[in-house]
């Protein structure tokens, strides 16, 4: 630990350190969902399986979420430069893309319901809805936090020079994004290979 023990501490911001510690634990959380999903990939109880996925549609919403990471980092970049108007604009753009993603998920779930895939259909269905649903919940919380950050920057609670706050929100948001990078590949694309082949 070369960085360590700078007299009093590690010279790190408490909040950033805590956020990284929290994010480390989140892997164990999502990992359990992914394992259940992989375990039950073929346990469809005579209901729909992975062939039900609409890859083009999910690709678009995945792309939106990925790009929301760009706007998020631009918000932080603006905040660092003291450009609060720009920061607010990019925050709103990020929240908006998050909502688009969530809307896409609601649409996707609705379609699946109509096609006979619901939570109670099979272990496969339960684990699919659980994994993507809990990720969606994370996005939803992220949107709430973004809107909170937006309004707090309006009231002056989040000031110029307090860009660690935006960075914290960003860390969470990017994390939710990289989890989706994994989910998109492991849940959608890789099982779909078997359907194709």
């Amino acid at each position: 630990m070369s960085v360590a023990t700078h007299e009093t501490s590690m010279g790190l911001d408490h909040r950033k350190l805590a956020m990284w510690i929290f994010l480390a634990s989140e892997f164990l959380f999502f990992g359990a969902f992914v394992s259940a999903y992989l375990l039950y990939l073929d346990t469809t109880n005579r209901g729909p399986g992975v062939e039900i996925f609409d890859i083009p549609f999910t690709s678009v919403s995945s792309f939106v979420l990925l790009m929301s990471s760009l706007t998020m980092v631009l918000a932080h970049n603006s905040h660092v430069r003291g450009d609060m108007r720009g920061m607010r604009l990019w925050i709103l753009a990020t929240a908006g893309q998050g909502m688009v993603f969530l809307g896409g998920q609601v649409y996707e779930f609705t379609v699946f319901f109509r096609e006979g895939l619901d939570l109670t259909q099979s272990p496969f269905a339960s684990s699919f809805f659980f994994l993507t649903g809990f990720h969606g919940a994370h996005v939803f919380i992220g949107v709430l936090i973004l809107l909170g950050l937006y309004s707090l920057s309006l009231t002056g609670k989040v000031k110029v020079g307090q860009d660690v706050k935006t960075e914290m929100v960003g860390l969470y948001w990017h994390f939710v994004d990289i989890i989706w990078v994994i989910i998109f590949t492991v849940v959608y694309l890789i099982p779909e290979l078997r359907v194709g082949g």
Partner: peptide
Amino acid sequence: FGAQFFQPASGGD
């Protein structure tokens, strides 16, 4: 909520 994670009847383990 009727999920099927551990229900052997539908293949849960």
